[in-house]
Design a protein around this nucleic acid. Structure first.
Lengths: 338, 338
DNA sequence: CTGTTAGCGCATTCAT
DNA sequence: ATGAATGCGCTAACAG
């Protein structure tokens, strides 16, 4: 079969434990024997068997990533590859592997997470969403396995380490941005309000309106669960007082709204100004290019893996949370009025 | 520490091997003891330690997925989540886990693959691209580890199992589609020609032109490596004979071209017809919606994992390859002329 | 049907 | 600075 430390030991005329120590680069081994052993390793084509190491060290050097279920329409959001890029960059610096959990439904994802954790396949978990009625996070708490949530947890905030933007602030700034351009009739369109991020942005939107003494009406806030659903836009624009600006909770959604507005004969930014969240490749490809709140997705991923690995190495550490700043990036979808 | 089969065995008054057999649901164990043992497992909260099992069975029930390096601009292509969805659906049916390899550069990806394979962390690999001068595939061949490539391999075609569309045929059909609409001056725009998929589609494009006795000129074929680069479009449209139709190698690219055309004052489909490849959420969000060759990405992923797991279970199996059919989906970006 | 024994490949005492 | 012995948690070969 494979070459093991025993084979190396025999050929190098040392004991297996010496070879093991060379692997760990122990300072109790003389440079001379290290060289000798390493030479034999190369000759024999030796490679460590991580599974055996895991069994004795009880650390897998692997983290699990829990995504939304793939039936969710935001599965296609470019957020995902970008956050993954951030996570993997950091993980590979520290020699951690990534195990991906996906599934068609919340239930199947939950089962996979349980299997990962109970089967001891991972040292920790990054949860890529924060959603109400979610069973994964409570399970992770109960199992006392290190984990980090990207997004603000709906519950147990104080026992959970999370990495997030300040989405209330981001929602407020986005709305302020429009208000400062002279807009007074601003609507909000978001996707699934079950996610904390959407609620936060709505709250920021409301704060901005209120702090500028503008009316804040529930009927100006709409949620779209299906991108092909035009009814929301139709509703907003059939009132006698149509909005002059929209805050839209994601760039993909903005593109579909752009299309609906176009079909209805509204011009962006001339008739309607638009500001959106997340900066992805779509932001620039949209016509017109979208003014957006950059949430720095890559950083979100990078920091979350940093936090997680720290937590793995010191499970009793203080559960601090990290807020990644957002940046408004001005482009062509907004306009001053009056 | 954790509950082991020994603990269960002791409490159930059986031997550890009996517990192990219950885990495997061996038919050599009486239903009665199975029930007894399972009851104790529940009471103790026992969960199998996969690492220990891996060590003796030499099967990790994990497959590795090799992506393009994240610096590649196609990293953001929605192809990725979709193919992953297909892969994971099948994998989870058979209880396989997914280990993801990413990296900023080809070199770092290669190193990760080497670590995965040599460290015996995976049973097989799916390579999500096919590129020239790639080191990963030759390494996998040398290591004799089961693997499947999505896309047509550039070399060693006969020793490699791959899942792909017939991209030559797809390129031909796309071009035929435009020719049948009356177009005679058709250009091709593709991204990185280092990938086999682009070359195939170009060849299909050429075949279609030739079979209709239309001129086939190299200067009508352009490659864009940077989406913000307008020069290619400028070149194509500054000739005295501007094209009436374009074959574009991906939907993202089509959207950026749509934007450039719009800025230059060309209307799609009135002035220029467009056909593109891959059907993603972007296809419908584009203005106008894109006529596209659906390459059925989900199926590509699903079949590749099916092939891989078959190969893992029977490494000497015949290395057949699978071709996933493509489907032209007509939308609003094309028009009859004359 | 079930128990006993012997590893899988490595890290880690405890010696020397 | 190095070796010998032991065990991580599980499966499998051999008994019975």
């Amino acid at each position: 079969m494979s070459v093991t430390i025993k084979d190396v030991a025999k050929k190098a005329s040392v004991s297996p434990s010496t070879v093991s120590r060379v692997l760990a680069d122990s300072d109790k081994i003389s440079e001379k024997t290290k060289r000798k052993v390493r030479k034999v390793m190369n000759e024999l084509g030796y490679h460590i068997n991580y599974n055996a190491r895991v069994l004795v060290q009880k650390s897998t050097k692997t983290i699990g990533i829990v995504m939304k279920h793939s039936a969710s329409h935001s599965w296609h959001n470019p957020f995902f590859p970008e956050v993954l890029r951030g996570i993997s960059t950091y993980c590979h610096q520290l020699d951690y592997s990534i195990s991906l959990t996906t599934g068609e439904s919340e239930e199947s994802i939950y089962n996979e997470v349980v299997k990962m954790v109970n089967g001891k396949r991972i040292d920790g978990v990054i949860v890529l969403y924060s959603k109400k009625d979610d069973k994964v996070v409570p399970f992770l708490i109960e199992q006392q396995i290190p984990f980090v949530v990207i997004g603000k947890p709906m519950e147990h905030k104080n026992e959970i380490m999370y990495v997030d933007n300040d989405n209330v602030q981001a929602g407020k700034e986005a709305t302020d941005f429009l208000i400062n351009l002279g807009h007074e009739n601003i609507s909000f369109i978001g996707d699934n309000p079950d996610f904390q991020v959407i609620q936060d942005r709505v709250n920021g939107y409301k704060e901005a309106l209120i702090s500028h003494s503008l009316p804040c009406r529930e009927e100006d806030i709409k949620y779209i669960k299906d991108n092909n659903d035009q009814s929301v836009v139709t509703e907003l624009f059939s009132k006698n007082k149509i909005p002059t600006a929209l805050v839209v909770s994601s760039d993909i959604q903005a593109v579909s709204i752009l299309k609906i507005l176009h079909e209805k004969g509204y011009k962006v930014p001339n008739d309607i100004s638009l500001i959106t969240f997340n900066k992805t490749f779509i932001t620039d490809l949209a016509m017109p290019s979208l003014t957006t709140v950059n949430t720095q997705t890559y950083q979100l991923g990078y920091e979350s893996s940093r936090c997680l690995i720290e937590l793995i190495n010191d499970p009793k550490m203080f559960k601090r949370s990290v807020i990644i700043p957002t940046i408004i990036e001005s482009s062509d979808s907004h306009k001053k009025i009056n």
